[in-house]
Write a protein that binds this DNA or RNA. Structure first.
Lengths: 208, 208
DNA sequence: GTCTATAGGCTGATAGAC
DNA sequence: GTCTATCAGCCTATAGAC
């Protein structure tokens, strides 16, 4: 009985490992060659298995992409949670903004998958979360939370409301990341300068 | 001699017309079904010709996409030029910002093609313009021009420089459009409110 | 569980008849 | 100029041997 359990455990550990290896390979392909290069054959080649074998671990190609996105949201939420300790909401908001951009630039193709590729995939992943706090909602909360705190403390510019302001900040940060990913050379301003400029304008424009 | 010229003209006019019809069809397909649905066969079906016929008018599929982008930049630059009459640079800048977002939302798939799809295609199209003012450069000029004027008039917040500020505005506007196109339902704030909020923050944050 | 083989689909692009 | 036929290639996913 005990021996059987150990064997079962080992088998399931091996399963998990190959699953993880598939995801690792997929991440590498998406990172290096973009989402459209993510094919079962390419993954199979990378992990030295046949394409058919992958179907034992993932229902289909979309399930692999969804897993990558999932991990991405998880990681983004985690990097936001590292900012939670900052007491001042304005400083915390700025840190979250910097973490957001850093995440996008550090994981360009995961970011692409999460926010720039397929609206339906993004939507279905976010909608799946309605029954309690998934990582997507947690991430969004980290953005709107500090703005709401500022609003409650009367520290927003007169007439400003938390939600539109948080959404405007998110849009602006997304624009910076997205533009860097799609037209790397285009906004001529270096990334750091651009981010500093944007955050400074944001603080001056909305917080008092 | 005269008759020959007329026939030649008529033929070339017919050529232009079919070329335009191909582009119209391509635009419709990209608009309705996205860039990946833009195939020679789908275009052929739409214009009731064979796929092979299209190669008489465009070298290949990329040339068709490039033509669509070209028209997009042309149209964007034109919509910016309609703002040129506004004397006050701050008001002109705001008008340009609104025109930019309107363009993106009115031509979602052309916008996608221009700024969200293929970095190399975007880059090659913009680089082709280096020998004098193409529509891309004209469009960028409409954005940075008013900011430079504000800088020259001492109307920027202390420490602000024209280029980073213009790039930050562009990034923010791009983010708004891009997010609306990819996750239509996501920033919960209505588009108009979001744009108003963003422009108000921008003005307060950078202009004095 | 993993393989090979294959069904059944799509793609861009070209050759050659008319 | 336009067609049909076709090449050569890619894809997802499955069947069935082992």
């Amino acid at each position: 009985m005990l021996a059987t359990m150990k064997a079962t455990e080992r088998r399931s550990r091996q399963r998990e490992e190959l699953r993880a290896e598939i995801l690792r390979a997929a991440r590498g392909i998406v990172l290096g060659e973009g989402y459209r290069a993510l094919t079962m054959r390419r993954i199979a080649e990378a992990i030295d298995y046949s394409a058919a074998a992958i179907y034992q671990y993932f229902e289909n190609r979309d399930a692999i992409a969804a897993s990558l996105m999932d991990q991405g949201f998880e990681e983004l939420a985690a990097s936001f949670e590292a900012c939670a300790a900052i007491a001042d909401p304005a400083a915390r908001l700025e840190a979250v903004g910097r973490a957001y951009v850093a995440f996008g630039l550090d994981h360009p193709e995961t970011y692409r998958l999460m926010f720039m590729e397929d609206p339906e995939m993004t939507a279905s992943l976010l909608e799946r979360e309605t029954g309690r706090q998934g990582p997507g909602e947690r991430a969004y909360g980290a953005l709107i939370g500090p703005v709401a705190e500022l609003a409650a403390a009367g520290r927003l510019q007169p007439g400003g409301e938390a939600q539109p302001i948080a959404d405007a900040l998110w849009s602006a940060l997304h624009g910076m990341v997205a533009l860097k990913l799609t037209c790397p050379q285009f906004p001529a301003t270096p990334t750091d300068t651009l981010l500093d400029t944007m955050l400074r304008g944001f603080v001056r424009g909305f917080i008092r």
